[in-house]
Design a protein around this nucleic acid. Structure first.
Lengths: 156, 156
DNA sequence: TTGATACCTGTTACATTATAACATATCAAG
DNA sequence: CTTGATATGTTATAATGTAACAGGTATCAA
């Protein structure tokens, strides 16, 4: 799992962008400049970023300046598993397990918005069991833990 | 667990309001008319309701007509465990386990917004384990499953 | 009872997040 | 190269959420 520990982040970005590029080629999806750029912006750090924060950056770089530009790119990235929405923050993060079929659980720092993505297999199984008992059909599961990352916990 | 099955809903409401009333007395919290009414509105059915939907009803009944009126009552109810926010929908539900210390997991129908509240003990334990491994301090966990309730699944 | 204090209600005004609808441009396939 | 689908960009507006202040109400100590 990609957590709060330091790592080779340049490689981290390159790998993720390359993976997205390859996946889009394979699936005949259009990995356009705006979409690529938004993914790169999300990858700049493992932090949740709001749509308007991303939009500001796009505008500065000569892309469109209106909300739908950012939202549509984000929708694309989320729909194809390259990014996730953090419901709790109304914000977005790059997916840390691009390509792999996974059920993410997010650990979100309330101080710095850093986000780590853990596998939630067991948690999901527990929910599936409860759902079955109710006759409920699960399509998607959101698991978000708010708290303090090691760095911010130490600072406090 | 209170699920999607039919039950004596009148008793369900009365019990919940009485429990909130008693808890507020015990804790010296003010269970004011707006707060009581908002809880009743949420209890009318086991469905997520938006702040503005609730506000419309408050306005029609002679309470204040501006957003903070609804948001403040909702904040109170959530802070004291009488209601929960469904992040995925930007909406609120009455708590189905009033008073009890619990970690809820929500089953949310995407068709009718019906919400069932399950215990997420095991799921939470799995997250706590992942968090410990990262040195992350968990303060709150949101678990929301989107899908179809039995009724809507049958209709489709 | 009165004054002090904290809390609650309601308002105006505004901030933030998100979408609908439409025109133009670009791409992919025959 | 035309056609149909997809993507981009725009304007305008909807939906959700808060800050800040004025006035009211509960509580409690003196």
């Amino acid at each position: 799992m990609l957590g709060f520990h330091s790592h080779d982040h340049t490689a981290c970005i390159q790998t993720a962008v390359a993976a997205a590029d390859a996946h889009c080629r394979a699936e005949k999806l259009q990995f356009t400049p705006v979409r690529r750029r938004v993914l790169e912006i999300l990858l700049e750090n493992h932090r949740a970023k709001g749509a308007y924060e991303i939009l500001d950056q796009l505008r500065d770089e000569g892309f469109g300046s209106q909300p739908p530009v950012a939202y549509r790119a984000l929708d694309f990235l989320v729909a194809h598993g390259f990014a996730h929405k953090i419901e709790r923050l109304n914000a977005f993060v790059a997916c840390a397990h691009a390509g792999a079929d996974h059920t993410p659980a997010f650990l979100i720092c309330r101080e710095c918005s850093a986000v780590a993505e853990a596998e939630a297999g067991p948690g999901r199984a527990a929910i599936a069991a409860a759902a079955r008992a109710e006759g409920f059909t699960v399509e998607r599961v959101v698991i978000e833990a708010m708290g303090l990352c090691p760095r911010c916990a130490k600072a406090a």
